[in-house]
């Protein structure tokens, strides 16, 4: 279960160039040549199509959520928002405990993101810059865990949670995802390159304890990667479906559990379902609207440095 929160972020392997220590970082930050060329009209046309393709389903969610069941199923389909949005949102909100779901998911995703970042940075630091017996074997183990399908251990896990008394409790969803193999690997890759070994050594010579080094040397350097990892983990945790569906009951759901309930029949109104989908996605969309630029920058930075 530790693996299913591994976001699909590429930690790009080094290009096969002869390493030029020292020069490398500076070189990579220099913009590529393509950037100097201006995009032509065709570029804008293709990008517009891509943006439309990306945004239209979301736009249509809004349209569907704001009309009525009958209107959605008529031809031609509606393309402009109707006036039922508030009503449908209210229906979706009450029918599947959406209020509880939103609060739960904020708590779960927030806790998981914080813990993953903390533990991944600690472990990433150790793997990248500290020397200890069995380091490579342990790191291989971490990476190996990424390949385990998340569905693999669900049955014993559920029994375990029942034994602890966490069935239908949020810790059942939080605890297994407190760490992530991807996170450890991501931070390790980042710190291996971004944190000059000399800096660590210098601090060490000054007699600094390794936790002190972590606090004063590692954290400042790691901060951008930590932000990216935290954001990715938050999104991933927010969207997690399989395990929460089994661990939680419908009276204490996460957003995705509530949504899959909406999608499985018996809910009278399609537009209410779409309103639910909108409600469950809205917080992340708001996050993207406000922090979009930073998130994009973070992902790209993570990709290069990772």
């Amino acid at each position: 279960m530790t693996t299913d929160t591994a976001p699909r972020l590429a930690s790009v392997p080094e290009p096969a160039r002869p390493p030029r220590p020292g020069a490398r970082l500076r070189l990579r930050l220099r913009p590529g040549a393509g950037r100097q060329m201006h995009g032509g009209p065709l570029t804008y046309l293709v990008l517009t199509v891509a943006a439309l393709f990306s945004l239209f389903p979301l736009y249509w969610t809004v349209v569907a959520a704001s009309t009525s069941n009958t209107r959605i199923t008529q031809t031609p389909p509606p393309f402009l928002p109707g006036s039922n949005l508030a009503h449908n949102l209210k229906e979706a909100y009450t029918q599947v405990h959406m209020g509880t779901a939103l609060a739960n998911t904020f708590l779960v995703a927030g806790t998981v993101a914080l813990a993953t970042v903390l533990f991944a940075t600690l472990a990433g630091f150790a793997f990248a810059k500290l020397e200890f017996t069995g380091r490579n074997v342990l790191l291989m183990l971490v990476i190996g865990t990424m390949m385990v399908p998340p569905q693999l251990g669900v049955v014993p896990l559920f029994m375990l949670m029942s034994d602890i008394g966490w069935s239908n409790e949020l810790p059942a969803v939080i605890m297994p995802t407190l760490v992530s193999a991807f996170g450890v690997f991501f931070m390790r890759q980042y710190l291996a390159e971004a944190l000059p070994t000399e800096l660590v050594e210098a601090a060490r010579v000054d007699g600094a304890h390794s936790l002190r080094i972590f606090w004063h040397v590692v954290l400042p350097v790691a901060r951008p990667a930590m932000a990216v990892l935290g954001m990715l983990t938050f999104v991933q945790s927010w969207n997690d479906l399989f395990w929460p569906m089994i661990a939680l009951n419908s009276d204490n759901p996460t957003v995705q559990v509530a949504l899959s309930q909406l999608g499985q029949g018996y809910v009278p109104d399609r537009s209410v379902i779409m309103a639910g989908a909108l409600l469950g996605t809205l917080p992340l969309l708001l996050l993207f609207t406000v922090l979009g630029k930073q998130i994009v920058g973070g992902i790209m930075q993570g990709a290069v440095k990772g």
Binding site: A50, A51, S54, L55, P57, L58, T61, V235, W238, N239, L241, V255, Q256, L259, S260, G263, A277, L278, G280, T281, L284, L285, L287, F288, T289, G292, K293, I295, V296, I299
Partner: peptide
């Protein structure tokens, strides 16, 4: 940001 937006949408939605 526009082309990244679908990434924020869950599988379910």
């Amino acid at each position: 940001v526009a082309i990244l937006t679908p990434y924020a949408t869950s599988v379910a939605a």
